[in-house]
């Protein structure tokens, strides 16, 4: 077997291994679910009175407002966690088997990214079920809601590409903070607790140009069925995908020449 069938077989084999590791290892699956739930409980539960602030006009309510943040946050971190797995595979030598046995090495990158998406899809379902129980209000059309989830999965790909680029370059678990911290900063400099128009001062200036703002505000508009920067969110995904795609592919090339 040669060409695309071999490549695809490699992608699915690597994705299957990672997915099995996720679903059979409590140490991986529990934090992946607890993390978003903690955010959700803390923000949606503890800060719901923020809806009384003048100018807070998000129709579906505060639980739905926070749900979108948790959705994107858990999706993106699902991508970051795959970077941990790659770094671990390089540290324990298993990555060498993949590099040696995979004729077309881009299958390694796509295999890990596919595993991250499967993992993110599972987390999204879990978070959504909990949010529905907690009173999630959906006002968008089925098409808009479908777009919201596609956008969330696309943000997972962005997180994966970022983390894979680092993991391939440094091949060590010691650099995992470099995978997480930039994403934390990006997310928390976006309108997490209140809509963009309620932010002021320096954080408003930063949030105005923060790509995460477009993802969150676009996602919230889709959930609410209202006007919002949906197009800008897609531009973030496309441009981010190109830039981070190059970042991860050049990382893979760097790993090949180490």
């Amino acid at each position: 077997m040669t060409g695309f069938p071999t490549w695809w077989s490699g992608v699915s084999g690597i994705a299957a291994r990672q997915t099995r590791a996720f679903f059979t290892n409590p140490a991986l699956i529990i934090p992946g679910l607890l993390f978003p739930m903690l955010f959700f409980a803390a923000f949606a539960g503890g800060l719901s009175d923020l809806t009384r602030v003048p100018g807070f006009d998000y129709a579906p309510g505060y639980t739905s407002f926070q749900y979108v943040f948790v959705l994107f946050q858990s999706s993106m971190f699902g991508g970051i966690f795959i970077g941990f797995a790659v770094a671990r595979d390089f540290e324990n030598g298993f990555a060498r088997r993949l590099m040696l046995a995979t004729p077309h090495r881009s299958a390694i990158l796509f295999g890990y990214a596919a595993a991250a998406m499967i993992r993110a899809a599972f987390t999204i379902v879990f978070v959504t079920v909990i949010a529905l129980i907690a009173g999630l209000d959906i006002l968008g059309s089925p098409g808009q809601i479908a777009l919201l989830y596609v956008l969330a999965l696309a943000s997972n790909i962005l997180g994966s590409l970022w983390a894979l680029g680092i993991a391939f370059r440094f091949q060590s678990l010691s650099v995992t903070p470099f995978m997480q911290i930039p994403l934390f900063i990006l997310l928390f400099l976006a309108p997490v607790y209140v809509p963009l128009q309620l932010l002021s001062g320096w954080i408003r200036h930063v949030a105005d140009v923060n790509p995460a703002t477009f993802l969150l505000e676009g996602g919230r508009a889709l959930l609410a069925g209202s006007a919002g920067p949906v197009l800008a969110a897609w531009l973030v995904v496309i441009i981010g995908g190109i830039v981070l795609g190059i970042w991860s592919l050049t990382g893979l090339r760097a790993a090949e020449t180490r």
């Binding site: 077997m1 077989s9 490699g10 084999g13 690597i14 046995a101 004729p103």
Partner: peptide, 22 residues
């Protein structure tokens, strides 16, 4: 280069998939 959490047969399956065997 082996994954301690996989069985021998699972290694065979993964290695086969990397080479396009099924």
């Amino acid at each position: 280069a082996l994954d301690k959490f996989l069985t021998g047969r699972e290694h065979i399956k993964l290695q086969g998939s990397l080479h396009g065997m099924k």
